[in-house]
């Protein structure tokens, strides 16, 4: 059965879009033991679309989510198939400044149709806790709460968790939504110096299960420059490995939690480089 997952956070700039792309691509290519799935990543950030850029599809956008919601285009006409991974598609957001362009009924129809076509539907939420963020989470079966180990991000995540438990279709039906914490932009060096909130502390405060710790990495910047999810541009890099693990946990596997690191000895680094 199809699963709708919202990638949300409250705060902007924490890594929602980066994570939507990386998780979506990782799900679509699969990893040892878990075959690739049919995945669509949906940009709900109307007015400030960016997922198309991070996915490298910006030159190919013809129609967008708003066109489909308003009936100006068929879903099949708006979906853009990824050029690298056949089972990965993107549904872009529009650039319109009209914040009411998305209607709850229209979004419901689109999500229903997406459920018929895909195994996983990842919704990239806009920042904030207003209508846009609430629409993005409304139809979700599960949520990935993206949080940086930093006070304002944790506080915003707490508010988002509150919304997930009160304003969504699941909440209204009296069910609880599964929520997963994804810690991003984690800097091991700063953590060791005691300059960042500890993972344990964030977990205790938010009390939702952890599906991954994504290290701060220059590979993420490189990936976005290239227009490729980091799980495709450099699958062996530390952040990509962390995303692949997160995807396995999202699918129910239990794995030991670790923060992958790119740090290597000089020799292995030199040889690794030669192969790359």
């Amino acid at each position: 059965m199809a699963k709708v997952v919202v990638v949300t956070s409250g705060k902007g700039g924490v890594g929602k879009t980066t994570s939507t792309a990386a998780l979506g691509a990782a799900l679509a290519v699969g990893s040892n033991g878990s075959p690739g799935k049919n995945v669509v990543v949906v940009d709900f950030d109307v007015g400030l679309r960016n997922l198309d850029l991070v996915m490298g599809a910006e030159r190919r956008v013809v129609y967008d989510l708003v066109n489909v919601v308003q009936g100006d285009a068929k879903l099949s006409q708006a979906l853009i198939r990824d050029k690298r991974v056949e089972t990965l598609s993107i549904l872009p957001a529009s650039q319109t400044r009209d914040k009411d362009a998305l209607t709850p009924d229209g979004v419901a129809r689109v999500i229903e149709e997406l459920r018929e076509r895909f195994d996983w539907i990842l919704c990239d939420s806009p920042a904030g806790i207003e209508k846009g963020a609430q629409l993005a989470m409304y139809h979700a079966d599960e949520a990935v709460v993206v949080t940086n180990p930093e006070v304002s991000s944790v506080r915003d995540s707490d508010r988002i968790i509150g919304l997930l438990d009160s304003t969504t279709a699941k909440a209204k039906a009296g069910e609880t939504m599964a929520k997963h914490l994804l810690l991003t932009r984690y800097d091991p060096a700063r953590a060791a110096r005691g300059e960042m909130l500890l993972t344990e502390d964030v977990l205790e405060i938010l009390s939702i299960p952890l599906i991954g710790i994504i290290p701060e990495s220059e590979e993420v910047l490189r990936a976005s420059n290239l227009g490729s999810p980091v799980t495709l541009s450099n699958p062996d890099s530390a952040p990509a490995r962390a995303y692949f693990d997160a995807v396995r946990r999202l699918q129910g596997e239990t794995l030991e939690m670790q923060v992958p690191s790119d740090r290597k000895g000089l020799l292995s680094w030199l040889f690794g480089r030669r192969v790359a």
Binding site: D187, P188, A189, R190, A191, A192, R193, E216, S217, E218, L221, R222, N225, L226, G227, A238, Q258, V259, S261, D262, R263, K264, L266, W269, R273
Partner: peptide
């Protein structure tokens, strides 16, 4: 978890051998 040290993992050597940067793309 890995310990402290210089952040980022790649230091000045990687600067010397830097892959053609992604910024032009």
């Amino acid at each position: 978890m890995s310990g402290g040290g210089i952040g980022g993992g790649k230091g000045f050597l990687s600067g010397l051998f830097a892959r053609r940067g992604s910024a032009p793309v």
